[in-house]
Computed example of a mutant assay.
Amino acid sequence: MTNPPPHLPALLALSTSLRAARTQRNMGLRQLANRLGIQAQILSLWETGKRPPTLEDVAHILGFLRVDPTEYKRIMLIRRRLDSLNPFETSGADSISLQRIFEDVAIRILEWAPHIIPEPLQTPDYTHAILQGSATQPDDIDQELFARQVQQLDRRSSCSHSVLLGESATDGNFGSQLNGAAATRSQLSIKIVPTSACFAGMIEPFRIYETAGKVFTVALLHTHNTIFVTEPDAVKRYRSTFRKLEQEAVDYHALG
Rank of each mutant, 00 (worst) to 15 (best):
R51N: 00
K214S: 10
I141L: 05
T170C: 11
E246I: 07
P87M: 08
T90V: 06
N3R: 09
T70H: 08
Q41I: 00
L131R: 07
G49M: 00
E231D: 13
V150A: 15
S189K: 12
H253L: 03
H115K: 14
A169T: 01
V193A: 01
E246L: 09
N86Y: 10
L255K: 09
G213F: 13
A10L: 07
T127W: 12
E56L: 04
D83S: 13
D57Q: 07
T23Q: 07
L8I: 08
T241K: 00
F228V: 05
T230E: 06
H60S: 11
R80K: 14
G201S: 12
R100W: 15
V105Q: 03
T70A: 07
H60K: 15
M76E: 10
P232K: 02
L45V: 00
P120D: 04
Q39W: 12
L12I: 07
D57R: 01
G133Y: 10
R237V: 09
D171K: 14
R80Y: 05
H222L: 15
Y209S: 03
D154N: 11
G63V: 04
I109T: 04
E231W: 02
T211N: 07
P4A: 12
I190T: 02
L8P: 01
R81I: 02
G166P: 06
D104K: 11
A182I: 14
R25P: 05
W112L: 05
G37S: 06
A106C: 11
H161A: 03
K244Q: 14
E89R: 06
K50R: 08
A183I: 11
S157C: 11
P6N: 06
A181Y: 06
S84V: 10
T195C: 09
P205L: 07
P114L: 11
V105N: 01
G213I: 00
T170K: 08
L8M: 08
V193P: 02
G213Y: 09
V105K: 00
I227K: 10
C198Q: 12
S189P: 02
L36R: 05
V58P: 01
R155Q: 11
A183T: 14
S15N: 00
E248M: 13
R100Y: 11
L82K: 03
